[in-house]
């Protein structure tokens, strides 16, 4: 088990976390550090506070409370001692550290012309531990293959937050790019994949280089607004498959339509728990109306496995399956 994110956690939280029960430590998804308030962790979907001795508790009074110094030290370590290089990150509210882990920040914002310029007095940290689960897409990818075109279907992955969307799309990118289709009759090569990674979640890029294995034929446009990134990719990187996370704005739909017309396959994700629910959102309703997506995959995570249901472009259910892999970072 790699715990590379631990190097940025200062004492005493560092040793408190190492004292956690082994099972919880292995399943850690989030560590929430709030100045003067109880240290909280989320392991395997369960939230609990942590005492100074590393045991889990529900009692906020018994929990360890990080001091201001700990917060300052953490900020110093996650910014590589150089907060001033993080202006863009502070505007967006999170910092990506080596290993693709994201640290969300809360504090007092400084505005300029009504826009958030950066965050001062940072007192809340949410360390989201990214997990790469290679093979999580094994059972879904064979259903997404378009044998006629020797390609993949336009797919929309629908899932509530924290149910493994991003982990899935990352593994899909890797397998499509490497051409490991997982189907005996699929014999074509890996395809050029373009990932528009607005929130640095899919590839966890650091200085433009992906931290995760997203495949050998994959290009990543990191930190780029989705619609603009998709257009840039189409114009300059000639991808065969475009992948984007969490579409939802009108311009996203425009860019997707543009990509579809350019003959590029699109795999996108969206927040939601039901296909019918999506139709209530104007942007998605429009995309669904035009039947631009050929496949919908509905994700649902229960304790240790991810279930998914597949629907075709006309929203007819065609398949239900599940895959192992409890932890997620989506």
């Amino acid at each position: 088990m790699k715990l590379n994110w631990l190097t940025v956690i200062p004492e005493p939280i560092h040793s408190i976390l190492l004292n956690l029960p082994k099972v919880s430590l292995a399943l850690l998804e989030e560590i929430r550090i709030r100045e003067g308030r109880p240290l909280e962790v989320n392991a395997g979907g369960e939230h609990s506070f942590v005492t100074a001795f590393g045991s889990l508790t529900d009692d906020a009074e018994a929990a360890y409370k990080p001091t201001r110094e700990v917060g300052h030290k953490l900020l110093d370590l996650i910014t590589n001692h150089s907060l001033y290089t993080m202006e863009e990150e502070l505007r967006k509210g999170f910092i990506t550290i080596p290993g693709g882990h994201r640290i969300g920040l809360a504090g007092r914002t400084v505005l300029s012309n009504g826009q958030v310029e950066h965050i001062r007095d940072i007192s809340g940290f949410n360390i989201r531990i990214a997990r790469e689960i290679q093979g999580v897409a094994d059972s879904i990818l064979p259903h997404l293959l378009d044998f006629k075109q020797r390609s993949v279907f336009h797919t929309l992955i629908v899932s509530p937050p924290q149910h493994g969307k991003t982990t899935l799309i990352r593994d899909l990118a890797r397998q499509i790019s490497n051409g490991s289709w997982g189907h005996p009759e699929a014999k074509w090569r890996g395809m050029k994949v373009g990932i528009v990674d607005e929130r640095s979640e899919i590839a966890g890029s650091l200085k433009g280089v992906p931290s995760f294995d997203v495949g050998s034929r994959t290009d990543v446009m990191d930190g780029c607004p989705k619609a603009e990134g998709m257009m840039m990719m189409i114009r300059s990187m000639s991808p065969q498959v475009l992948m984007v996370d969490e579409i939802g704005r009108a311009e996203d739909a425009e860019a997707i339509a543009e990509a579809l017309h350019a003959g590029i396959r699109v795999i996108a994700t969206v927040h939601g728990s039901d296909i019918d629910e999506l139709e209530k959102r104007p942007v998605l309703a429009d995309l669904m109306e035009r039947q631009l997506f050929q496949m919908y995959a509905l994700l649902h995570r229960s304790n240790r496995d991810i279930k998914f249901r597949l629907f075709d472009g006309k929203k007819r259910g065609i398949q239900t399956a599940s895959t192992r892999g409890g932890a997620s970072d989506a």
Binding site: H72, L75, D76, T79, H81, S82, L83, Y84, E87, L90, H118
Partner: peptide, 10 residues
């Protein structure tokens, strides 16, 4: 103060 604030401050 080095490294702990924005550029202008530094």
């Amino acid at each position: 103060n080095l490294g702990v604030s924005d550029r202008q401050d530094q």
